[in-house]
């Protein structure tokens, strides 16, 4: 399986990433992509910007572990995970997960699995600026619940 993991400040090109997955292998019959964006609201108040911090030497290996787990659970041909860091603005792209497989069920489920695990395991932290005041975003119980539905031991 082909896996690509990138952590970068720069934006990414959805069409280009899709194209890379599509052309991996002629056996690819399904490509599912997910893109996460910066919402303009945090706790019902608008935000000016969002800053993403991460733990550089740890994040990539954690993402690779998540992708490796997905590969063991589904038949996958390619997985791409891109996560941006640094300062982002509302509507900016934050995260991309793309999965290529022979059949759609594998791609759909694996994409959701990778996102659910990324949200609860990968070492990223968000800080928002609301009218000049900065505070760290708190983790959500709903993300933990979303991860637990896969019934995987950590």
């Amino acid at each position: 399986m082909n896996s690509t993991i990138r952590i970068q400040a720069d934006d990414f090109d959805l069409a280009a990433e899709y194209e890379l997955l599509r052309q991996l292998d002629s056996a690819v019959g399904a490509v599912v992509t997910f893109t996460g964006l910066v919402r303009d609201l945090e706790k019902n108040a608008s935000i000016n910007s969002l800053t993403l911090q991460h733990y550089p030497s740890m994040t990539e290996s954690l993402l690779q572990e998540i992708v490796d787990q997905a590969q063991q659970l589904w038949h996958l041909i390619g997985v791409t995970v891109i996560h941006r860091v640094g300062e982002l603005l509302p509507s900016d792209q934050i995260v991309f997960v793309g999965v290529a497989s022979q059949h759609r069920a594998d791609a759909f489920e694996a994409a959701q699995f990778v996102m659910d695990y990324l949200k609860t395991k990968a070492t990223f932290w968000k800080k928002v600026d609301q009218n000049g005041e900065q505070h760290w975003v708190e983790s959500k119980d709903s993300d933990q619940t979303a991860k637990e539905r896969w019934h995987k031991d950590d």
């Binding site: 993403l52 991460h54 996560h83 932290w125 975003v137």
Partner: peptide
């Protein structure tokens, strides 16, 4: 060694 303290993550 490198010791890091990690609060709950909030990426994605």
């Amino acid at each position: 060694a490198e010791l890091a303290f990690l609060p709950p993550v909030t990426g994605g």
